[in-house]
Design a protein around this nucleic acid. Structure first.
Length: 273
DNA sequence: ATCAGCCCCTGCTAGC
DNA sequence: TGCTAGCAGGGGCTGA
C-alpha cells in the first residue's frame, strides 16, 4: 500500500533508471489499467516519446513525456512499477509493459486498483483528483497552523481526517496510525477537538514518520517494492500498524484494533488520549 | 458542505 | 482435504 514515502521511493528509483529514455513500445495486457485514451490510441500516442521528468504529488506519480504528454500513475494498494532488463517475462498481474530504449518498466497490480492515465501535460493538474489534493506535508506550504486551520471545520474522527487526501496529500493508513501514536492522540478523537499543543505534536509527528519512512525506503508490509524490486525497511520501525493485540512498545498495554472510516486502525488506549 | 458507506479486485486465512 | 465466507484497503461515487 504505497503512501507518500513509498511513492517517493519509487520515484527516486525510477529516476535513476529511466530518465531521458525513449518509450519504444507499450504493451497493454489489461485495458482496465489505462485511462484517458483507448488502448491503441494510448499506445500510438506515447510511442517514440522520451521520459523527461518524474515528479510526485501526494500518492500520484507524474511522468512528463515529450510533445506535451504526461502519465499520471497511482499504485493504489498493490501496484508496482519495476524496472527490468529487456525481455523480462511479465508476471501474471503485469498489466502494462513500457519497452524503453534501454530496459523496460512493468506496471504490475494484483488487485487491479492502480491506474496509468495519459493526459496533456497542461491539463494534468486540472484533473479533479489532483486539483483537489491538499498540501504536501513536507513542503513549504504546510505548517502546524495550516493543519489547525484545515482541521477546524471538520467534525469527523482525526484518523479519518488524516486519510482525506484533500485535507493533506500523501498520508495513508500506515502513517496515519503511526503519526497519531507518536502524537499521543486517540484516532477516534473529533478532528476539531485537538488543542493547539496537540495539533503541533501531530504536525511534528506527521513530518517525522514521513521523513523516516522515506529514509527507510518505505514500508514493505505485503506487496510494496521500489523500481529495483527492493523492499523498504520502515516496517521495522512501526509502533502500532499491524500490531493489534500485541504489547505497546512504550507502556506494554495491549494495542487495540478497531475499524474506523472503513479502515483497520491500531492504537494504544493508554498512550493515546 | 460534510461524511458514512459502498464498490472495485484478488489472494490469503479462518472455519466448517 | 476442499470449500466458502470474510477480510485487506485508496479513492471515487452516491445518497443522506
Amino acid at each position: 500500500m504505497p503512501e507518500l514515502p513509498e511513492v517517493e521511493t519509487i520515484r527516486r528509483s525510477l529516476c535513476q533508471r529511466i530518465l531521458n529514455l525513449r518509450i519504444e513500445d507499450i504493451l497493454i495486457r489489461w485495458p482496465g489499467a489505462v485511462e484517458g485514451y483507448e488502448g491503441k490510441t494510448f499506445a500510438d500516442t506515447v510511442k517514440g516519446l522520451r521520459i523527461q521528468s518524474i515528479e510526485r504529488r501526494g500518492k500520484y506519480l507524474l511522468f512528463t513525456l515529450e510533445e506535451g504528454w504526461s502519465f499520471i500513475a497511482h499504485m493504489r494498494m498493490t501496484g508496482r512499477l519495476v524496472y527490468h532488463a529487456q525481455g523480462q517475462e511479465p508476471e501474471k498481474h503485469t498489466h502494462v509493459v513500457l519497452k524503453l530504449s534501454s530496459g523496460e518498466v512493468h506496471f504490475t497490480d494484483t488487485r487491479k486498483f492502480g491506474r496509468l492515465q495519459l493526459v496533456r501535460t497542461e491539463e494534468r493538474l486540472k484533473q479533479p483528483s489532483l486539483a483537489r489534493l491538499g498540501p504536501e506535508p513536507l513542503e513549504g506550504g504546510f505548517s502546524a497552523e495550516e493543519l489547525a486551520r484545515r482541521l477546524a471545520p471538520r467534525k469527523l474522527a482525526i484518523k479519518a481526517a488524516l486519510l482525506d487526501q484533500n485535507l493533506l496529500a500523501g498520508v495513508g493508513n500506515i502513517y496515519a496510525d503511526e503519526a497519531l501514536f507518536r502524537a499521543g492522540i486517540a484516532p477516534e478523537r473529533c478532528a476539531n477537538s485537538l488543542t493547539k499543543e496537540e495539533t503541533e505534536k501531530l504536525y511534528t509527528a506527521i513530518c517525522q514518520v514521513l521523513e523516516e519512512g522515506i529514509a527507510a525506503n518505505g514500508t514493505s508490509f505485503r506487496d510494496y517494492q521500489d523500481a529495483n524490486g527492493e523492499k523498504g525497511d520502515f516496517q521495522k520501525e512501526l509502533n502500532v500498524y499491524g500490531r493489534g493485540g500485541e504489547a505497546c512498545k512504550c507502556c506494554g498495554h495491549t494495542l487495540e484494533r478497531i475499524r474506523l472510516a472503513g479502515r483497520s486502525t491500531v492504537f494504544c488506549p493508554r498512550c493515546q488520549r
